[in-house]
Design a protein around this nucleic acid. Structure first.
Lengths: 364, 364
DNA sequence: CTGTTAGCGCATTCAC
DNA sequence: GTGAATGCGCTAACAG
C-alpha cells in the first residue's frame, strides 16, 4: 500500500499540509479559491486518496457503522441490511458486516472488533437469546456493549435489549411489536373456530420467537379458544420442514381416527416466520397434504422473495428495511429517541394459505 | 471515543509501550512469561481494546475486505456475501459492504472509499455492464481499480473483468461459466422440439445476462432449432413480471390464431435468472395461464429461497457461496491463481416447471 | 487566511 | 529480552 500522501500533495501545490487538508476535506476554514484550485489539481494529478485510517486516528471517529446479523443470506436479515446500508450512506458512513449465527459469544467478539475499529455505531439486528447456554455469553456481550457505550459508542438493537445490558445513553432499542402483531394474526385466524391451532416455533429462549408465540396464544385466548400446541424446532427453513413432517403424520393420524369430515378439526398452523412456514408447507405437500384444504398455514415477516409462493402465504408484514434504517438513524444520531422516532408498525396480511372453510375451486 | 491506550496498559504494568505491544499482539519477539502475564492482566483490568486504526496506520494494512454488490437484499448477492464473509473470517478480516445498484459510477466511488480505508482486498460481485451510458463510468472505475492495484491492493471480480481494466497483478477474475451452462440448459430443453423458445433477458450490455442469452441461443442452434426471441427488461423480479405479462398476451393471441391444440407451439421461456423467472411465472399465472401446461419456464442461479416455489423451477445451479469464498480467497492471498483454484462449475436442474409434453395430472 | 507545531495510538527500528 | 526513539498520515490548536 504505497499511496501518495497529503504531504506530497501539499508540496506539489507549494502549500502547507494544513492548507491542503483544509481544501481537500471539508473544513470550517475556507482557503482562497486560487490556492484551493492549485491543491485540487495537485491532488488530482497525484491520484491522492485520503487515508481514512489516519483521518480516523486524528479525529477519533471512523465513519464506520457495524452491523451484526445471524446470517446475511437469510432474507430477513438481508432486507434489514439493505435499510442499514441505505441509512449509512445518508450519513456518509460505510457498513462493516459481521455474522454470528446468533451466538452471543460471537456477537461479543464482533462488538469488540467493531470497537477496535472505532465504529461510530453498532446495529444488532439478530434476535436476542435467553437460552440457558447463552447466559454467560450474554453477560459478556452486555459488558462489551457497555464498555463500548461508555467509550462514546452508539448501539441500536432491533427488538429487545441485550439481556443484562444496563441502559446507558447511547444504547437504543428499536421495538418491534411482535407480540401484538402475532395476537392480531391469531384474532383474524380465530374466525374459523373449528380449527385446531398449532404453532411451529423456534427454540425456547429466542425472544422474537417467544414473543410471537406468546402473542398468538394471547390472541387465541381472547377469542375464547384453547391454547395451541407448540412444536419447537430450528428457526429456519429446515426446522419448519421437520416440524411440518411431524405435523403431517399427526394430521393423517387424526384423520383415520375420527372418520368425520376433513373440515372438522382442520389444522391451522402458525409458523413464527415465513421461511419456517415455507418449509412446513413443503413438508405437508410432500406428504400429499394440500393447503389450505387439509391444513391452513400462516407465517410472519412478509419476506419479499416469498410473496410469489403459492398458495400465497398469510403473514404479518414487517417493514424490514425501515427497521434497519431506523436502527441506523437512531444509532447514527440522525434521529432522536422518543417522539421523533416513528414507532415500527406492521399489519396482518391474509392470503390464500389460510382461506377458511372448505377449499375453493382450484385457482392458480 | 475514549478508550484506554496501550501506553496506559504499559504504565499500569510497569513496562514500556513496546513491550506491551509485543505481548498483546503477536510479535516475533517473545517477552518473558512473567512480564507478559502482568501486561495481560493490566490490559484486562483496563478493558483495553487495541485501536485498529492506529495499528493499520502503523502497519499500513487494515484487515478489511471490501465487497461490492448491486443489492444486498437480492438473494443472489446475499448468498455470495455469505461466502465472502466466511472466507474473510478465515483470514481474520472483516468485510466492508457497499451497494451500487450496478452503476459503475457508484462502484468507482466504492472502490475509492475502500482504498481510502486501505482495504486489503476488494471483491466485486456485481455483473459488469457494457451499456453505452456506462462507458465513461467503466473507464473511471477501471482507472480507480488500477490505481488501487498499483498501490498494492488486491481485486477479485466475479464473472468478467471490468471493462477497460488492464491486467495488473493483484487483479483476479473468478470466471463463471454462464454461457456454457446456459447452452447446456438449452440442450436439455431442446428435447421438446415443438416448443417456441423465448428468452427473457436483462438490459443489453449486462454481461451476465448477455452470456446466458448467448449460451442459450447457441444450445438451441446446435440442436438445430431456430434462435429464440429475446425480450429485454429489468434484471429483477419486476422485469420478469412485465415480460411475463407481455408473453401472456402473446400466448393468448397465438392460441386464438391457430385453433390447433395448445401443445403445438407451446412456449418455453428461459428467464436469465431465477428471480426474473419467478416474476414471469407470477405474471402468467395472474393471466390464467398454467405452468407447465400452457408454457414451460426455466431460470438460472438456483436460488435457495426459491426452491420451494411450485411448480418447481428448472434452473442452473451455481455454487454462489463458493463463488464468494473463492473470490475472497483469491484476493486475500489464501489461494493462488491458476491450478490451485478449482474452477467454478454448475449444473442444470430440470424440475416440474419444464416437464415436456402435456401437463400431467395435478400433483401438489 | 496561511503556516507551524503537536499529537492521535501503535509498531518498529534501533540502542541498551 | 527490554526500553527509547521515530514515523505511519492526518487534523487541530495555535501562532503569524
Amino acid at each position: 500500500m504505497v499511496a501518495s500522501t497529503l504531504a506530497e500533495v501539499a508540496r506539489l501545490a507549494g502549500v502547507s499540509p494544513a492548507t491542503a487538508s483544509r481544501v481537500l476535506n471539508g473544513s470550517a476554514r475556507k482557503p482562497g479559491e486560487d490556492i484551493a484550485e492549485r491543491v485540487r489539481r495537485a491532488a488530482e494529478s497525484l491520484g491522492y486518496i485520503p487515508n481514512a485510517q489516519a483521518q480516523g486516528l486524528a479525529k477519533s471517529s471512523s465513519g464506520l457503522i457495524g452491523l451484526i446479523v445471524h446470517d446475511i443470506a437469510d432474507p430477513y436479515f438481508a432486507a434489514i441490511a439493505r435499510g442499514v446500508q441505505e441509512a449509512a450512506r445518508e450519513q456518509g458512513r460505510m457498513v462493516l458486516l459481521a455474522t454470528t449465527a446468533g451466538a452471543p459469544v460471537d456477537e461479543r467478539e464482533a462488538v469488540a472488533a467493531f470497537a477496535a475499529r472505532r465504529a461510530d455505531a453498532i446495529v444488532i439486528a439478530g434476535s436476542r437469546s435467553a437460552r440457558p447456554g447463552d447466559k454467560d455469553g450474554n453477560l459478556e456481550l452486555a459488558a462489551e456493549l457497555d464498555r463500548y457505550c461508555r467509550n462514546g459508542g452508539q448501539v441500536a438493537v432491533v427488538g429487545h435489549a441485550v439481556v443484562g445490558a444496563s441502559a446507558s445513553d447511547g444504547y437504543h432499542v428499536v421495538p418491534v411489536p411482535n407480540e401484538e402483531l402475532a395476537a392480531g394474526l391469531a384474532t383474524e385466524l380465530a374466525a374459523s373456530r373449528d380449527d385446531r391451532f398449532v404453532i411451529i416455533g423456534g427454540p425456547e429462549g429466542l425472544f422474537t420467537s417467544d414473543d410471537r408465540i406468546r402473542g398468538f396464544q394471547r390472541g387465541l385466548a381472547s377469542a375464547g379458544l384453547p391454547a395451541a400446541e407448540v412444536i419447537r424446532t430450528d428457526f429456519n427453513r429446515s426446522g419448519g420442514f421437520e416440524a411440518g413432517m411431524a405435523l403431517a403424520a399427526q394430521i393423517k393420524a387424526s384423520r383415520t381416527a375420527d372418520t368425520a369430515r376433513a373440515d372438522t378439526g382442520r389444522f391451522c398452523v402458525f409458523a413464527v416466520n415465513d421461511v419456517m412456514a415455507i418449509g412446513a408447507a413443503a413438508a405437508l405437500r410432500s406428504e400429499g397434504l394440500h393447503i389450505p384444504r387439509d391444513a391452513t398455514i400462516a407465517g410472519f415477516d412478509d419476506i419479499e422473495t416469498l410473496r410469489d409462493f403459492r398458495p400465497a402465504l398469510s403473514t404479518v408484514h414487517l417493514p424490514l428495511e425501515e427497521i434497519g434504517r431506523q436502527a441506523t438513524r437512531r444509532a447514527g444520531g440522525t434521529l432522536e429517541d422518543g417522539a421523533a422516532a416513528p414507532p415500527i408498525t406492521g399489519h396482518v396480511i391474509l392470503r390464500r394459505s389460510t382461506v377458511s372453510g372448505p377449499a375453493p375451486e382450484r385457482i392458480t
